[in-house]
Amino acid sequence: MTKGVVLFANNNEQVDYIKQAIFCTQQIKKHLDLPVSLVTNSSDHLYKQYSTYVELFDKIISIPKVNSGQRKSFRDGVGPVKKLEWNNLNRSDVYDLTPYDETLVMDTDYIVANNQLLNCFKVNNDFMIWKEATYLNPHGKVWEIKYVSDTSMEMYWATVFYFKKCEKMKTYFNTVQHVRDNWAYYRWIYQIASKNYRNDFAFTIAIWIMNGFEENKEWPAKLPGTHYYIYDRDQIIDFNDNKFTFLVTVPQDQKKSTATTVKDLNVHVMNKLGLQTVIESKGI
């Protein structure tokens, strides 16, 4: 059985996901020692700008550049919002794209700092994903996301997940694709306010459908460890010696923030612009 990690990187006007993928891969190599394949519509950029890093990747899987038609707000802490292209539509194609029998899929802004995820490969589950998550901002209760919408089910995070190739997972990803391709309908059915397609929601809806519209504690299984995250309203200041330093924002008074450090934890750094700055400081 082949094992590996798949990352997706589709650049927009300002966020260099290729750069993030390089840093993300360096961290994966360091802590998980797994081959990493990159699915990207920006492979030219990789070969031109980062030719010395190409060998980091096991495989480069080029996909055509398609305008997603979606724009999303990107923040860097409390700074002004930038509306940029949001190209997240091909994550549900991963079943056919992955070169591995057992695959970990990660966002490029998920920074690995320990080897906990290796435990995925030691247990016999076809699908593992997190539902519960811990927001590293102790003031940020009002920004926490629990449900897909106010009246619907608890959300699974598609940030990181593990799957094994099998008929059930093929059906699952077909279902995610069906939700993606009929997003306007599912948005309406599940009372989702945002027009943008969101993988967390589509993955959750597909799980819900597969489980007969009810909670199933057996499937999917929970990933090992805990899902930690910060929002794009929080700032990443530094990542050094496996230690993150964040400035987490107080929602009620956004001029205020609190410094927080965490060490040896994997963290989903949703402030992509801030993460990019930190990565650039590493010389990438």
Partner: peptide, 28 residues
Amino acid sequence: GWKHNYVNSSGAVTLHFSDNNFFIGNFK
């Protein structure tokens, strides 16, 4: 457990019956 202060539940979710199952807001 809704955040929004709905006056009526029927304004927030539907109740329907299909294939001998009842669903409220897509929950079996």
